[in-house]
């Protein structure tokens, strides 16, 4: 299996296994990714599974996860198409409104030019299956405008000068 989960410091193996909505609950131990829809329909059904993560699809309302977020160390937000921007709002709501601190992973149609925007909305992991994107990331090419004109979901961004919202990326003080 190829290590296809891109994070700040490289590519990692995907340790989560997708549990399809129609699939029976597994009896053997493991780390399972469950859709938000299935989980919120019957949260108690998952009591026997110590490690689950949530898959948020476009159109899902992430705020329904509020009472359960302690249970998850990973939430994946799916981009069915890169041009569907709902996942960016879901990410900011999870990070900023629900104060979720676990891994926030972008999955689906994840491409190089969207990754910098996703990071600013709070994503810190990306499942990358698009070959040119992978190649670019491996060479450290992030294709970003590293100056920002509005606050977003990363508290570690640095103010860039005295202007109200001018910022630069974490660790890149100007």
């Amino acid at each position: 299996m190829q290590a296809d989960i891109y994070k700040e410091n490289g590519f990692f193996l995907d340790e989560w296994q997708l549990l399809e909505d129609e699939q029976a609950l597994p009896t053997e131990p493991g780390r399972f990714l469950v859709s938000l829809e299935r989980f919120v329909a019957a949260p108690e059904a998952f009591a026997s599974l110590p490690e689950i993560a949530i898959l948020v699809r476009a159109g899902d309302d992430v705020t329904v996860l509020a009472p359960h977020l302690d249970r998850f160390t990973m939430v994946a937000i799916e981009f069915a198409a890169f041009s569907d921007g709902r996942g960016y709002s879901s990410a900011r709501l999870l990070r900023q409104r629900l104060c979720y601190h676990g891994e926030l992973r972008a999955v689906g149609d994840v491409l190089l030019d969207q990754i910098p925007l996703m990071r600013r909305c709070g994503f810190d992991a990306f499942k990358v299956v698009h070959e040119p994107t992978r190649r670019a990331l491996e060479t450290g090419h992030l294709a970003e405008v590293p100056l920002y004109l509005q606050p977003a979901a990363r508290p570690d961004e640095q103010p860039a000068g005295a202007r109200a919202w001018a910022r630069s990326p974490a660790g890149l003080a100007r």
């Binding site: 890169f82 041009s83 569907d84 921007g85 960016y88 709002s89 900011r92 969207q114 910098p116 925007l117 996703m118 990071r119 600013r120 909305c121 405008v145 920002y148 004109l149 509005q150 977003a152 919202w165």
Partner: peptide, 14 residues
């Protein structure tokens, strides 16, 4: 204009 420039959340609106 400044606030909306390359806004990370609102670059792929409907």
């Amino acid at each position: 204009r400044q606030w909306s420039s390359l806004h990370p959340e609102f670059s792929f609106l409907p």
